[in-house]
């Protein structure tokens, strides 16, 4: 099984903005969750999320994925 890249996002307190705090490699989401907690636990986060980078789409029109609009 090949590793995927996961992006890690955290929120310090409820209502605070979500911050991107780093990345990690893992073969699947379950290990990614463990690794995220073990690597980025230096703060008392109220939330921590891991998201496969492959699931994130760019919304910027300058980026190829976002610019793939009919007729553009």
């Amino acid at each position: 099984m090949t590793d995927q890249v996961f992006e890690v996002f955290c929120r310090v307190a409820p209502g605070d903005p979500m911050s991107h705090i780093g990345t990690l490699n893992a073969p699947h989401i379950d290990l990614a969750r463990v690794y995220a907690w073990k690597i980025y636990d230096e703060e008392d986060w109220s939330e921590m999320w891991v998201i496969p980078r492959a699931s994130i789409a760019s919304a910027h029109p300058a980026h190829d994925d976002a610019a793939r609009v009919e007729g553009s």
Partner: peptide
């Protein structure tokens, strides 16, 4: 709980 999650993840793999 995280120790178990780590073990379970590696066993699956």
């Amino acid at each position: 709980r995280f120790h178990y999650a780590h073990a379970e993840g590696w066993v699956r793999l």
